[in-house]
Every structure is written in structure tokens, then in C-alpha cells.
């Protein structure tokens, strides 16, 4: 206890000791997280990988079938259909991040009404995706508001069953996801901007940097790690959490035209009951895809960070 008056640092122990101690403390502070993940996630993840090679029915039947599930999934072309849809939906990621960044800088610069906007923009995140999906679907239904407006403006030839074809339904979903995520992106980026010294910002403004220069040349390089977070989470979210939105907008249909990998996992594990082995297979495939994309993103952001210092 006598140490209290002369704690750690100034004694300057040898570098190797320091390093070892630092590592020990770091791992100690990571321990709760590692323990929780190990206890809760490790077994289910390993079990999922193992069962992707079985014909698991959710109960006791899990005979080893080798690569049969993988062959079926890739061989029937189902994978490409679903993956292609996932890729289209991924287009919302750059959209939401860029719009979020612009809105965040606008709010940071205190445009008129910024307080109200900041309070309102997050609201979609609080409302059930099922309701939002239903509203979008109604908006684009055959005699919904969008078609009515088109008709009134004289574009009767453009009136169509928007959700009835993947080529129109998927872009609408991209719009919906972007719309839904703007508020989330905005407040994350605002949070990141709190680390920026306002004098830097003010100086750039006085130097005559216009809005886009301020946004992309000043702000963006200073918050690359936060932007990386935004992009990674948006990608992960788009790949793994769109079920309820798709469910209420199209149900994955018509056919499989708007169905995604995670929706299929849901279908295989719940709707068609006993094909959990296949659901595990799709999960493993999804896992690998998201991991590769995330690794690429991180690499990119490392390069960006080095470039911008």
C-alpha cells in the first residue's frame, strides 16, 4: 500500500519488462470479453461448422454427409441467385455512409434546425423493421402513392408492380436500407467528429475551403477509423440482419428474386423445419464471405490511414 504515493510510471523499468506487463494488463482487461465470447459463442460456432457437413434435422439426426450440402448449395445455382441479391443490396453501404457523412457535417456546422434534425433522424432505428417494410411495400404497391404520382405526372408507362420483379424491387430495397440507416450513420460519424479539434475545422473554413472540401478533405481523413467501423458494420448488417425487412417487403419473392443468404438461412431453419444441416452450410458460406469482405475493408482502411497519417 505504501506504493500509493509513487505509482508505476516514472521508475522506468527495462523495456522488455514493460512490454510484458503491458501485455499482461491488456489481456486481463480483455478477459471478461474473451470469457463471454468463449462461453457463449465458441461452442455454437464450432457446432455450426461441424453440422454444415451433416444432414442435421434440428434433433438427433446428424449423419455425416461430407460436402453434400455444399455441393447442393453451389451446384443448383441457388448460391449465385442469393449472393447476387446480397451484392445488389450492398450498394446501400457507400450510399448510406456518404449521405451520413454529409448530414453529419451539416449538423456539426449547425445548419438551421440542426437540433431537431439530430433528434428526428434516428427515429427509424427505433421502429420495428416489419412496420417500415410494410410501409415501403404499400408505397410501391400497384395502386400505391408512387404509381399515383407517376400517373398524375403523365408517366403512365412507368406505372408497374414495383415489388413484382427483382430488377425493381432490389433497388427499392437499397433505397429503403439507405433511408433507414442514414440516422445511424449520422450519429456515429458525429460521435467520431467529437474527437476533431474545432479550431482545425474553423481554420479550414476561414481558408475558404468549401463544404465538400471540408467534408472529404478535412473531416474524412481525421475519422478513418470511425468510417471503417461504419462501413464494416453496415456490411455485416446488410449480410446478416435484413431478415425482417425482406420478410415484410417481399418475403424474398417473387420466386427467389429478392431472397438473400440470411433469409434463406431463416427459411431452412424455421419454415421448412428440418433442413438445419443446410442452414448451417449457408451460415458457414455467409461467414466466409463477410470475413473476406471485412478483411479487405480493414486492409483498405489501413492503407488510407497510412496515406493520410
Amino acid at each position: 500500500m505504501a506504493q500509493r504515493s509513487s505509482p508505476g510510471a516514472p521508475a522506468l523499468p527495462r523495456a522488455g519488462d514493460m512490454q510484458r506487463k503491458r501485455t499482461r494488463i491488456a489481456y486481463l482487461s480483455l478477459l471478461p470479453v474473451l470469457l463471454i465470447l468463449l462461453l457463449v459463442k465458441a461452442y455454437p460456432i464450432l457446432a455450426t461448422i461441424y453440422r454444415s457437413f451433416t444432414n442435421w434435422d434440428g434433433l438427433y439426426k446428424h449423419d455425416f454427409v461430407g460436402l453434400a450440402n455444399y455441393k447442393e448449395f453451389f451446384g443448383t445455382g441457388l448460391f449465385m441467385t442469393l449472393f447476387k441479391n446480397n451484392l445488389v443490396l450492398l450498394l446501400s453501404v457507400p450510399l448510406q455512409v456518404i449521405i451520413g457523412l454529409i448530414v453529419a457535417v451539416l449538423l456539426y456546422e449547425q445548419v438551421p434546425g440542426w437540433k431537431a434534425f439530430r433528434a428526428i433522424y434516428y427515429i427509424p432505428q427505433i421502429i420495428s423493421l416489419v412496420i417500415l417494410g410494410y410501409l415501403f411495400r404499400s408505397m410501391f404497391s400497384l395502386d400505391g402513392p408512387v404509381n399515383k404520382v407517376l400517373e398524375a405526372l403523365g408517366f403512365s408507362s412507368s406505372v408497374r408492380e414495383w415489388m413484382g420483379d427483382g430488377s425493381t424491387a432490389l433497388p427499392i430495397m437499397v433505397g429503403c436500407i439507405t433511408w433507414y440507416s442514414i440516422g445511424w450513420q449520422t450519429i456515429v460519424i458525429l460521435g467520431g467528429m467529437s474527437g476533431i479539434d474545432p479550431s482545425v475545422f474553423e481554420a479550414a473554413r476561414l481558408d475558404g475551403a468549401n463544404f465538400f472540401q471540408r467534408t472529404f478533405k478535412i473531416v474524412l481523413p481525421m475519422i478513418t477509423s470511425v468510417i471503417t467501423y461504419c462501413v464494416v458494420m453496415a456490411v455485416v448488417w446488410t449480410f446478416t440482419s435484413l431478415f425482417s425487412l425482406i420478410y415484410s417487403m417481399t418475403g424474398g419473392g417473387p420466386g427467389y428474386e429478392t431472397m438473400t443468404l440470411d433469409y434463406m438461412i431463416y427459411e431452412k431453419s424455421f419454415v421448412t423445419g428440418s433442413q438445419l444441416g443446410m442452414a448451417c452450410t449457408i451460415s458457414v458460406v455467409l461467414f466466409i464471405i463477410v470475413m473476406l469482405i471485412t478483411a479487405a475493408e480493414m486492409k483498405l482502411s489501413d492503407i488510407a490511414e497510412q496515406k493520410w497519417g
Binding site: 491488456a26 480483455l30 474473451l34 461452442y43 457446432a47 455450426t48 434440428g58 446478416t240 463477410v290
Partner: peptide, 28 residues
């Protein structure tokens, strides 16, 4: 803090994000 194995541990923690909940729910 700079410590050994930082990036590795970070990546392992992140990867647990990529597994959809529907499938891991039953074993969990």
C-alpha cells in the same frame, strides 16, 4: 496499449459478428 497478439485477438473477436443468430441459437 501495444501488446503482443493484438491484431489477432481483435480479428477473432470481430469474426463472431459474422455468424447469423438463427443457426447458433439452438446450440446456444
Amino acid at each position: 496499449v501495444n501488446f503482443k497478439g493484438k491484431n489477432g485477438v481483435y480479428l477473432v473477436i470481430l469474426t463472431t459478428l459474422f455468424v447469423p443468430a438463427q443457426v447458433t441459437m439452438i446450440p446456444m
